[in-house]
């Protein structure tokens, strides 16, 4: 396959166009998907008080065990 100028132009005019259009649609759909609203709200509020240290999972990961 020849990597010519024409080849790139053809690629961007065909595949590139639909790739960008498709991605825009997908992202807009994701951002405004109604059922994700709760998760987004929770995320937006989650930063307001986060100074309380890492969450405590039921089992502590090995590298976090008290050193000693």
């Amino acid at each position: 396959m020849d990597m010519t100028h024409e080849w790139y132009v053809a690629l961007s005019k065909s595949f590139g166009l639909f790739w960008l259009l498709g991605l825009s649609v997908a992202i807009t759909a994701y951002a405004f998907w109604p059922s994700l609203g709760g998760r987004f709200d929770k995320a937006a509020n989650s930063i307001l008080d986060d100074e309380d240290g890492p969450a405590q999972p039921t089992s502590t990961k090995a590298e976090d065990k008290a050193c000693r």
Binding site: G53, P54, Q56, T60, E63, D64, K65, A66, C67, R68
Partner: peptide, 11 residues
């Protein structure tokens, strides 16, 4: 001395 801090409770 080795540290005594509990790494699971702090950043």
């Amino acid at each position: 001395a080795e540290p005594v801090e509990d790494r699971s409770v702090s950043y």
